[in-house]
Design a protein around this nucleic acid. Structure first.
Length: 229
DNA sequence: GCATTAACCACAG
DNA sequence: CTGTGGTTAATGC
């Protein structure tokens, strides 16, 4: 992997589909206007309310996108790399509309916003890839919104556990990267409800819990719960 | 009415 | 930060 700070977009092995379609000249432009950074667990990548800076591309790790609402913080989504984050907030406003925080040690590449715009202007295929990625994100977000609104706690928690296992970790046993309070912010529930519901799933033998480690035992049953809400 | 759900509060490891 | 118990408001038989 490239050293943090210095990046080489030509040889980067986890570059985006969008960067894949750039020509040599464009890669040179990108390379000189791009910098890598490393974040520790729970370190903020950008902060809601502060001036937007650069376009961020998450290369490794895990990131939560979250926003302070009227009463409390809410986790909008968890982002598994490689993925751009914050394109809407950087291009859509001068002030960040939401925050991004690393949940695991995370590496990020920042692209100077004006450079990003230049590439979009110059290269239609690049723009197309970026738009595709934003569209996918939006569709995913719609699904999640509907699921959150129409299910009750058991379904929402089962959803989250299956998502973590299938999409994020690709394993049925994993260490929760979130506190139970964070998990509550993610599935629209209080910390207490998360504790209780996890306890019930455990008591019913659907999952095993050892500290932070969660192991899904009866995934079919969890899917059923997720489906029925 | 009665049961269920989930938030709110308090207190204890 | 997590686990529990009591209370309470809303919703649905």
């Amino acid at each position: 992997m490239d050293l943090p700070g210095q990046v080489n977009c030509e040889t980067c092995r986890i570059r985006s589909c969008a960067v894949e379609v750039l020509d040599q000249q464009e890669l040179d432009i990108l390379k000189t206007n791009c910098a890598g950074a490393v974040y520790a667990r729970n370190e903020r990548i950008f902060q809601q309310g502060s001036l937007t800076s650069n376009i961020a591309y998450v290369k490794t790790g895990l990131v939560k996108i979250h926003k302070n609402g009227p009463s409390k913080d809410q986790i909008l989504k968890l982002v598994k790399p490689p993925r751009f984050i914050g394109i809407p907030t950087v291009l859509g406003d001068k002030i960040n509309n939401y925050s991004a925080t690393a949940l695991l040690p995370t590496t990020v590449c920042f692209i100077v916003t004006s450079t990003f715009k230049t590439l979009i202007m110059r290269n239609g295929r690049f723009a197309n890839e970026v738009i595709n990625s934003i569209c996918q994100d939006e569709l995913t977000f719609y699904d999640r919104s509907i699921n959150q609104m129409q299910k009750q706690i058991h379904g929402r928690l089962a959803d989250a556990l299956l998502f973590l296992a299938d999409e994020i970790f690709e394993a049925d046993s994993f260490d929760l990267p979130l506190s139970q309070s964070d998990l509550g912010d993610y599935i629209h529930a209080t910390r207490e409800s998360v504790t209780r519901t996890l306890g019930r799933l455990k008591a019913d033998g659907l999952i095993q819990v050892k500290g932070k480690n969660i192991k899904l035992i009866e995934k079919d049953m969890l899917r059923k719960i997720s489906k029925l809400g």
